[in-house]
Simulated scan of single mutants.
Amino acid sequence: MPEIRALRRITETIENASVLDRAVDFDTKIVRAVARPKALRQLLHGVPFGHPLHPLMVQVPLGAWLSSAVLDLVPNRGNRKASRHLVGVGIVAAGAASAAGFVDWSELDREQRRTGWVHAVVNGTALTLYGLSWMQRRRGNHAAGRLLGFAGLTVVSAGGYLGGHLSYRQRGGVSRAGEVPFDA
């Protein structure tokens, strides 16, 4: 089956968007300064584990948010609290996954960093939606919490698409000889 041309145009536009370079360069400097200690960088790159940490870590927030969405689709008043807790778990876990992702991202080439930067902005938007969802649920406004959760799931799916593009099409962070990428 051929690739959807509109999606390819979007990703190529992002890869070539030099207008992003000032923000990308600024954020790269910040990440490199914060993750300056070699031991921290290697931990977040996943060196002790033998492969990058970010792809593993994103499973927790995504799994929590998908599980919350399933509970939100099942009409059971008892699911409300569990769904809110799952949204909260996803929010907390997203922070750790983001830290690992940012450290990997800071080592990529320019086109990959452009894609990764947009990936991070999109996922940050999803995280904001989930934060608002959690707050609405906490206040007892479950309908708004569910809607914000479904919006967050839609947005994080778009972010996941960009992350997949970065990994599989652009080969960001893929090692050539089986070693952990970025093992400096």
Score class of each variant (00 low, 15 high):
residue 3 E to N: 12
residue 3 E to Y: 13
residue 4 I to C: 10
residue 5 R to K: 15
residue 9 R to H: 09
residue 10 I to Y: 13
residue 11 T to R: 13
residue 12 E to V: 08
residue 14 I to D: 08
residue 16 N to G: 14
residue 17 A to T: 09
residue 20 L to N: 00
residue 21 D to H: 00
residue 25 D to Y: 01
residue 25 D to M: 04
residue 26 F to S: 08
residue 26 F to L: 12
residue 27 D to N: 09
residue 28 T to C: 05
residue 29 K to S: 13
residue 30 I to R: 03
residue 33 A to Y: 13
residue 40 L to I: 14
residue 40 L to Y: 02
residue 41 R to K: 15
residue 41 R to N: 09
residue 41 R to E: 14
residue 43 L to R: 02
residue 43 L to E: 05
residue 44 L to F: 03
residue 45 H to P: 01
residue 46 G to C: 05
residue 46 G to E: 02
residue 50 G to D: 07
residue 55 P to H: 04
residue 55 P to K: 03
residue 55 P to Y: 02
residue 57 M to D: 03
residue 59 Q to R: 11
residue 59 Q to Y: 09
residue 59 Q to V: 15
residue 59 Q to A: 10
residue 60 V to E: 07
residue 61 P to I: 05
residue 61 P to Q: 07
residue 62 L to F: 08
residue 62 L to V: 12
residue 62 L to E: 04
residue 65 W to E: 03
residue 65 W to C: 02
residue 66 L to E: 04
residue 69 A to P: 04
residue 69 A to K: 03
residue 70 V to E: 06
residue 71 L to W: 06
residue 71 L to M: 09
residue 71 L to D: 05
residue 73 L to R: 13
residue 75 P to E: 11
residue 76 N to A: 14
residue 79 N to R: 07
residue 81 K to A: 13
residue 81 K to V: 13
residue 84 R to T: 09
residue 84 R to M: 13
residue 86 L to S: 05
residue 86 L to C: 07
residue 96 A to F: 15
residue 97 A to S: 06
residue 97 A to N: 00
residue 99 A to C: 05
residue 101 G to W: 00
residue 102 F to P: 00
residue 103 V to D: 01
residue 105 W to H: 03
residue 107 E to S: 11
residue 107 E to Q: 15
residue 108 L to M: 13
residue 111 E to H: 12
residue 113 R to Q: 12
residue 122 V to Q: 02
residue 126 A to P: 02
residue 126 A to Q: 03
residue 127 L to P: 01
residue 128 T to N: 11
residue 128 T to D: 08
residue 129 L to R: 02
residue 131 G to A: 15
residue 131 G to E: 08
residue 133 S to G: 14
residue 135 M to E: 11
residue 137 R to D: 14
residue 137 R to A: 11
residue 139 R to L: 15
residue 140 G to M: 15
residue 142 H to F: 14
residue 143 A to V: 15
residue 143 A to F: 12
residue 147 L to M: 09
residue 147 L to N: 14
residue 148 L to G: 04
residue 150 F to Y: 11
residue 150 F to H: 13
residue 153 L to V: 15
residue 154 T to S: 14
residue 156 V to N: 05
residue 157 S to D: 11
residue 161 Y to M: 09
residue 162 L to W: 04
residue 164 G to I: 07
residue 166 L to P: 00
residue 170 Q to F: 04
residue 171 R to N: 12
residue 171 R to P: 04
residue 172 G to E: 00
residue 172 G to C: 02
residue 172 G to R: 00
residue 172 G to W: 01
residue 172 G to Q: 01
residue 175 S to R: 01
residue 176 R to I: 10
residue 178 G to F: 02
residue 180 V to F: 04
residue 183 D to K: 10
